[in-house]
Design a protein around this nucleic acid. Structure first.
Length: 554
RNA sequence: UGGGUUAUAGUGUAAUGGUAACACUACAGAUUUUGAUUCUGUCAUUCUAGGUUCGAAUCCUAGUAACCCAACCA
């Protein structure tokens, strides 16, 4: 068997170097979400990276919730995050919370104060911002910067004890107000928040900032490679400074470029807006780029993992074409999804020479490979076919049904169109055909050659179903590069609901989320909104459609 | 008028001084009882200008462009 030589990404190169040099004997990574929203495809990239590295190098990966801001975080999000990671197929070594470290982090802060590297500042937020300067002008030391260690310690303890109101005081690291790196200009490391925390309740009224929680948590867990996205590069200097001053385990931070995808918004803030303002129904709306939305839409975990693998890991800004994701979904579903027949836009086809009341169960393969197996599909005199499969005046190169034309009914017989019926508005309401009894699928002795094969369902046997067709949520390729509010680029046609579709009876007991190919129409799955009396299918993704392209050209 | 990061096909990712490769997209064509799948083919003087070298995407110099940094968010 050929072993595929795959080149390493820059993080893998670092890890292999660290392992080879003996810097580490095994690696430990972590996935550190803040539980303030649902995970999206961008998180999937990070999950696949972190967990994938753990697996590849025989190490482990922790799941750590970065829950240091009680006003934004909720248990609902914690639960959804765990569900999504598991669904993607990954297992964490330990489930941890930054809030578990609040006692330890507090002690770290006291240590910093004792070493003269932190002070309590009574300034207002505005005063702090003013003295901070700008990227091009240095900041200035504030009056409180020179407080004694003893004073700082007492003040900080009083902050913890609840003596002060929100915003009255903060604890700052004492570094350098003139540093080029804004994050080194005495960053705030603790703030007062009299707020209820989803895990620690009302135990605390001071909470550490990201910079005083993340790296320290990494260090406590002995994370070897702490991988985050590019916008944290300026934080790395502070990350290292704190580890050095605290004299704790030296985790190292590495940064890669986050995922951007065409026709998609990825920020949690924007996704939250879509949910709260009713542009979509929920976080798991199939139009959302969330993992739960994609799952509900019918995307498979494997296709998402493959996608993350193909997009690669690098440090440059990127904009991945969403068609790559769709390719990965089709690629996986093509291998797995049983083929069935469903008619989305029904048109009655009556076979004049087929006996009234007769039914045949026709053998039909469930997929292109033998391993898919077969099933029986009922056939009768009256069928539903797709309205677009008939043209009164056929277009050029159209090889479906038209007056006088022949077509194969998939897994059944060849029929010829004799006539059609129109209503008062000129709309075709039924077509009349004759069938060739000796053209039965698998046993065709008719000698008739047809160019087209179309799908169908038997009218008396069909199940009525409702189908949700999803199109892209945003109409522009890069919504954040456009002028104004991204919501003005929302596609009003992002969801199209078909109430009267007909599907073959084998779909009666379809499991939720399980992918089917509706032949010639795309991949679909049963939605969780379905009931015993109403089948609701989501369109996962269309099939590639060469004919649609052909029609567009003309 | 500061600091940091990045520049390879339409989009991504490789090539680690030695023939610019792979995937997606797009466009042709073959096969097909899904206009699907599958298969075949087409698409680059590596941001620019100099330099080093027998040889440069890779090293050096000088530019240019994009992105990030001034939340008591993460």
């Amino acid at each position: 068997m050929m072993i595929e030589e795959k080149s390493l990404n820059f993080i893998e190169e670092i890890i292999e170097k660290d392992l080879k040099s003996g810097k580490y004997t095994s690696i430990l990574t972590r996935f550190p979400p803040e539980p303030n929203g649902y995970l999206h495809i961008g998180h999937a990239k990070s999950i696949c990276l972190n967990f994938g590295l753990g697996i590849k190098y025989g190490g482990q990966t922790n799941l750590r919730f970065d829950d240091t801001n009680p006003t934004k975080e909720e248990t609902e999000y914690v639960d959804s995050i765990k569900e999504d990671i598991q669904w993607l197929g990954f297992t964490w070594a330990r489930e941890l919370y930054a809030s578990d470290y609040f006692d330890q982090l507090y002690l770290f802060a006291e240590k910093l104060i004792e070493k003269g590297f932190a002070y309590v500042d009574d300034s207002t937020a505005e005063e702090i911002a003013t003295l901070k300067g700008t990227p091009t002008t240095p900041g200035k030391d504030c009056f409180y910067r020179s407080r004694s260690v003893a004073d700082n310690l007492q003040l900080f303890r009083e902050m913890k004890a609840g003596k002060y109101q929100d915003g009255e005081k903060v604890l700052r690291a004492k570094i350098d107000m003139t540093a080029n790196n804004m994050h080194m200009r005495d960053p705030i490391i603790y703030r007062i928040k009299h707020a209820h925390h989803h895990r620690t309740g009302d135990n605390w009224c001071i909470y550490p900032m990201y910079d005083f929680a993340h790296g320290q948590s990494d260090s406590i867990e002995k994370i070897t490679h702490s991988i985050c996205t590019l916008e944290f590069i300026p934080h790395r200097e502070l990350y290292d400074w704190l580890i050095e001053k605290l004299e704790i385990f030296p985790s190292t931070q590495y940064e890669f470029a986050r995922l951007n995808m065409t026709y998609t918004v990825m920020s949690k803030r924007k996704l939250l807006q879509l949910v709260e303002e009713g542009y979509v129904t929920s976080w798991d709306d199939p139009r959302m780029p969330t993992i739960s939305g994609m799952r509900r839409r019918g995307y498979t975990a494997e296709s998402i993992r493959n996608f993350c693998d193909r997009i690669g890991i690098a440090k440059r800004e990127n904009m991945i074409d969403i068609s790559l994701l769709e390719f990965c979904v089709r690629e996986d579903l093509n291998k797995k999804a049983p083929r069935v027949m469903a008619v989305l836009d029904p048109l009655k086809l009556i076979i004049i020479n087929y006996p009234e009341g007769q039914t045949e169960d026709l053998l039909s393969e469930n997929g292109p490979e033998e391993s898919f197996g077969t099933r029986l599909v009922p056939f009768s005199k009256e069928l539903w076919i797709e309205a677009e499969d008939f043209m009164e005046v056929p277009a050029k190169k159209y090889f479906r049904l038209a007056p006088g034309a022949n077509v194969r009914l998939k897994s059944a017989y060849i029929v010829q169109c004799d006539s059609f019926v129109k209503d008062g508005n000129g709309k075709v309401t039924a077509i009349h055909c004759t069938y060739f009894p000796d053209s039965k699928s698998g046993n065709d002795t008719s000698g008739i050659v047809v160019k087209g094969t179309i799908h169908w369902v038997s009218a008396v046997h069909a199940l009525k179903a409702s189908i949700r067709l999803y199109n892209r949520l945003l109409q522009v390729e890069n919504p954040s590069a456009e002028e104004g509010d991204f919501k003005s680029y929302i596609n009003p046609q992002s969801l199209q609901v078909i109430d009267t579709a007909y599907v073959e009876p084998s779909l009666l007991h379809a499991p939720i989320h399980s992918g089917y190919q509706f032949i010639r129409k795309g991949y679909f799955c049963l939605d969780k909104d379905s009931t015993a009396t109403e089948l609701i299918f989501n369109r996962t993704v269309t099939l590639k459609d060469a004919w649609a392209k052909e029609t567009k050209k003309n």
